[in-house]
Amino acid sequence: MKSRKEDLTKKIADELQFPQTAVSDIFHIELKGNSDATIEGCRGILDYDETYITINLGDSTVRFSGAELEISSFFDGRAVIKGTIASVDFSN
């Protein structure tokens, strides 16, 4: 049921050309070069080390790999990761 509702919302947003982040609680990741990533919609940190950070996004997870990674700030579902990001992997 929830999935159908989300599909419908997505369809309406697509038709009206609204950004999906405005109509659903989908996560939003923004990268500035390979040194700065802002993730909105974080549910929690799953793994944290200098070389990788795994973040829970609800239905999926995202893993940032690289070097000298740090969580510059984490508050209210919004995390900022700084460091040298080598790869971003998603998994369900």
């Binding site: 974080c42 929690g44 940190i45 799953l46 793994d47 944290y48 080390d49 200098e50 740090e70 969580i71 510059s72 700030s73 984490f74 508050f75 209210d76 579902g77």
Partner: peptide
């Protein structure tokens, strides 16, 4: 567990910044 520590802080509304985790030391 540093990850759990960060998550608990977030849940309690505690702002953290410049958090670095290296070899178990946060």
């Amino acid at each position: 567990f540093p990850e759990r520590f960060i998550n608990l802080c977030s849940l309690q509304g505690i702002t953290l910044w410049d958090a670095k985790c290296s070899e178990g030391l946060l």
